[in-house]
């Protein structure tokens, strides 16, 4: 077992395109939950409609990539309105129930037989990245980076653009949350009746934040389609949403950089525990484990690490402990 190469590989994934994509989606979730207190358990649904917006536009209708992004974002806008209009007037738990169900329904519809002419059914869509790679200033065949932290040209391009979007969205979130608008949003998280009694239209604010966070989630989906160059419906299972929640809580909810640090730490941990377990397995420590068992054991291991984190550092990596400890209501 080569611990150094496991560490190097884990670090590489912490800065890689997937970590950036999850960071982006978690920024959206942070707007929902971290700042506003909206329980969105269907963030993956926004990623899905974003990814398929790109996929269907590019692969089926042969439209340029920017149109695909626009379609993906538009779908997310519609989805947010559909979810929000009936549930945002109700108690917070209704949104949670609705979002988790809606995300799963959307996945099942997109993979259904009748949708196959558009979505490719269970096989999904392929060849989605050409429009993106045309713009690639890097050479697809070369590797870029230093030492273990190197990526091929195509991935480097996705990585730069996605981390760029992450930086942009962090800036956006920072500006919004340091404005009177952000103050109303945080007020809603604390007690929406109090905010309503001060003359603020709470429903409109919650709708705005649901749309905004959903759009950012869809953007992450678009980048996922571009990064993989293909999409399948079954990669948008509910576990993606739970990974995003873990990322958010790990990094620190209600902090601008919480989702970013969370995503990096999460993917580092995922790859590190995976490498470690497999390394130990290859040395014959776990004779009772078969190949696929490692995945399950690894997830359990990550789960234990997270439990430890929640117990000893409930505010996440960069949350404010003082703020956490104030009894809510």
């Amino acid at each position: 077992m080569d611990i150094v190469s496991i560490l190097a590989e884990s670090t590489r994934s912490a800065f890689g395109p997937i970590a950036a994509i999850y960071a982006l989606a978690a920024i959206g979730l942070n707007l929902h939950f971290g700042y506003t207190g909206l329980l969105n358990f269907g963030q993956v649904g926004f990623m899905l409609v974003g990814a398929y917006g790109v996929g269907i536009s590019v692969a089926v209708f042969d439209l340029p990539l920017p149109v695909g992004f626009a379609v993906g974002l538009l779908c997310a806008l519609v989805l947010a309105l559909l979810l929000g209009i009936p549930t945002l007037r109700l108690r917070a738990d209704y949104l949670a129930i609705t979002t988790i169900a809606a995300a799963e329904v959307i996945r099942l519809v997109y993979r259904a037989g009748f949708a196959e002419p558009l979505t490719g059914g269970v096989y999904g869509l392929q060849n989605l990245a050409d429009g993106f790679r045309v713009l690639n200033p890097f050479d697809g065949g070369e590797r870029y980076g230093v030492g273990a932290l190197s990526y091929n040209g195509n991935h480097m391009w996705v990585l730069v653009v996605t981390w760029g979007l992450v930086a942009l969205m962090c800036g956006l979130v920072w500006m919004l949350m340091h404005s009177p608008w952000g103050r109303v949003i945080k007020g809603i998280r604390e007690d929406e009746d109090a905010v309503r009694s001060l003359g603020k239209n709470v429903f409109a604010y919650k709708m705005q934040i649901l749309v905004l966070g959903g759009l950012i989630g869809a953007l992450a989906g678009c980048m996922l389609a571009v990064y993989q160059a293909s999409i399948q419906p079954d990669q948008f299972k509910p576990q993606v949403t739970f990974f995003l929640w873990v990322i958010l809580l790990l990094g620190g909810a209600g902090r601008v950089f919480g989702p970013v640090l969370g995503a990096m730490a999460f993917w580092f941990l995922m790859n590190f525990t995976d490498g470690l377990l497999r390394g130990m397995g290859s040395m014959g420590w776990f004779p009772f484990l078969q190949g696929p068992d490692y995945g399950a054991i690894q997830l359990a291991f990550v789960g234990v690490l997270l439990v430890v984190l929640i117990v000893f550092r409930p505010q996440g990596l960069i949350g404010d402990r003082k703020e956490m400890l104030i009894n809510v209501k």
Binding site: E190, D191, S197, L198, E323
Partner: peptide
Amino acid sequence: HRVARAGMVRTFQLTKALTRM
């Protein structure tokens, strides 16, 4: 919220201070 904007504002029996602000 529109009643409040009209100039009739209320408080609550169970005080609603926005605790984490």
